[in-house]
Computed example of a mutant assay.
Amino acid sequence: MAAGVWRFEWANATGSKWHLPLVDEATVKFRLSQAGSAELKVPMDSAAGRQIAKSDSVSDGWGYVLVYRNDTLMQVLETEVTEVGVRDGEGVPVIGISATESPYQRMDGVIIEPTKPYLFPTTAGQIGTRLKTLIDANTSWGITCATPGTTVSVDPSVFEQGITLLAFIQAWAFRASGFDFRFNPEFTVSGAGYGSTGQFYCASTIGEIKLNAKFEFGAGSKANLSAYSWKRFGGQHLCNIAAVPSNGTSGGNAVGLKTAADVTSVATYGIRWRWITADFEDATLRQNLADDHVAFRKNPRRVLSITPMPETTPTAFVDYSVGDIVPVSITDAGLSVINGNVRIYGISVTIDKNGMEKIELETSPETA
């Protein structure tokens, strides 16, 4: 698909915007329950380039990158690094921009309770509903919250003082009984107050089963993949005994330690004991964390990266998106590498200087 449907804008801290003309390639990554990112270069001799390169204010080189597809806002990022003085292949000065999805940056900058351990929720209930109440009550955090999908009911838990909003949400989300989350992009920064750069949404599962969005390599009628990479991650990923300490707050770790193990994994791979630190005290929550590390890490993780051919179907963000489950069939050198469903955890879009986009999908069969 031609990349003319993609458009980039720069916005400063007060919300003023400038078009970002691209030099060479730009890459934008969309992820499930993790921050998206972007890498791009723009001419220094452009309205946006001159604004970014100015030296009369410390904030000039910092700003937001707004990513549009077909004039629909797809992602709001903020700069990690702007590099002035880079040259392109012809020696023309350009500005390099590295950016990370803004709501994650904002969440990582919010400490929920700096003075004492934090109890949440105060009464049992669906975690998504309780999080919405919390976010709605704190407009200065710079994010909003959509009505959540169905999530599990949780009991009150105690978290350590000083925990950030991002670590707090991840503590609930990254459990077998947790949830998926994303930020629906929005941009209301205007210089008057904090505005919002994303709308938090969570559900037990985000995405759908898209059986018509089929990808094939080496065999089959579609043959719509140009490349694939099939990896298995062992090493530090492997964990068949997990220990989560109490951080010294419940009579020492000998008293507060919570552990989990998988004897089948130990028999297969040997002992892979991991010490998992946590930002919360609650014993039940720490036991859940130990259980979940073993559940997800007792075997090597399999990751399949696939590259669809340009201008073929299915189409990213139309026929499938992050979180969806799609069928994949790969036959190579006479061997059936994979034939089944995979879940899409990430979509990487590379837009070249000729206006073409290249899609790469990061998938895994483990939870499909």
Rank of each mutant, 00 (worst) to 15 (best):
N12D: 15
Q51W: 11
S204G: 12
F181Q: 01
I276D: 00
Q105M: 06
S16N: 13
T268F: 01
N288T: 06
T133E: 15
G149I: 04
T277M: 02
A13S: 12
I206F: 03
D291R: 00
G220Y: 08
V67A: 07
E186N: 06
S204H: 04
D279T: 05
I127S: 10
R7P: 04
D45R: 03
D45K: 04
F200I: 14
D56H: 09
I163P: 06
G4Y: 11
T133S: 14
V152T: 07
I97K: 05
S348N: 14
L22D: 03
F233R: 13
N12C: 05
F233D: 13
G36W: 01
E281Q: 12
S204P: 02
K132C: 12
I206M: 02
G207L: 01
Q105A: 06
P314I: 06
F120E: 10
E281A: 14
K132W: 05
I111E: 14
F217P: 14
T122G: 09
E216Q: 13
Q34A: 10
E366T: 06
I52F: 03
V255C: 04
V303L: 13
K214S: 13
S157W: 01
Q105P: 02
T249R: 14
A13I: 13
Y228Q: 11
S59L: 14
D291F: 00
R69Q: 15
Y320N: 09
D180Y: 01
F179I: 08
V318M: 12
P185L: 04
G85A: 11
D24S: 12
I163N: 05
G323W: 05
R130E: 15
T313F: 11
L32I: 08
T129N: 06
S336A: 15
G91D: 10
G109F: 09
D319H: 13
P114F: 04
D136P: 07
W230F: 14
P117H: 10
C239V: 08
S348E: 15
P93D: 09
L211V: 08
I344N: 02
K258L: 00
